[in-house]
Design a protein around this nucleic acid. Structure first.
Lengths: 123, 123
DNA sequence: TGCTTGCGCTAAGTATACCAAGCACATGCT
DNA sequence: AGCATGTGCTTGGTATACTTAGCGCAAGCA
């Protein structure tokens, strides 16, 4: 279904472009598809994902909408929102969210967390 | 794009420029003072307040900080925040946290999300 | 074997966000 | 009268966001 992530382990995105690219691949969209929805040209999206250009907030909003995510999340990733100092930084969002999920059983939670930790390479 | 934002029901400000100008005057700051604090040139601030240019999110954030207001408020006034998010229940917890995790690869995220959905019974 | 269609990327140009220098008019001081 | 210093604004240029045309490659199909 989806192509392999080249380069292997370590998906920590160094920039906004990496973030957008990972979100786009997660949504199984090609560059031209996402560019069409976000109303930008596909070469420009290419440059943005490669970190060559930093898109304006308007474009950022369109991309966020196209990826079904809130504009705030996008702006936060772009570093445009960091004036509010009080951010409730729960360290591991995944484990926290899993533990709080009301639809999972205890065993299912343990399974997911175990898989998650194995992916991170720590026991 | 839309240069005339009409139809804003009850909007006290015709445009973003008017909003900034009123906030600046409310803070008893001259253009040069605000421009200095916001790290932009005063002619540019003049153009912005007169609605000739639409500032980037970066500048918007600086102006908001200089006026001691949150960047979100500024973005909302600039019309950069009014996305229409579908109220998808998958956005709430686990899937959202997984997608935003910076340490997982795209494939790992897809794996975890697939397991999570299978646990919920909705493939 | 070719033709088509999809992909991401490059190159070159246009539009616009943004800055430095300076204008025109006020006010205050001597 | 002069000369400072303040205000907002205009002009001309530079940096950068963004687009249109097209390249090279891989996969499907005649």
């Amino acid at each position: 279904m989806s192509d392999d992530e080249k380069g292997g382990a370590g998906a920590a995105w160094r920039s906004l472009g990496d973030f957008i690219r990972s979100q786009r691949e997660l949504a199984n969209l090609s560059m031209r598809q996402l560019a069409e929805i976000a109303k930008i040209s596909n070469p420009y999206l290419s440059q943005v994902e490669r970190g060559l250009y930093k898109p304006s907030a308007d474009v950022l909003k369109n991309i966020a909408n196209a990826l079904h995510m809130s504009a705030e999340t996008m702006y936060a990733q772009a570093g445009l929102l960091d004036d509010s100092p009080d951010r409730d930084e729960s360290h591991h969002g995944v484990e926290h969210a899993v533990k709080l999920d009301p639809l999972l059983t205890v065993d299912q939670k343990e399974t997911i967390i175990r898989i998650y930790r194995s992916f991170l390479g720590r026991e």
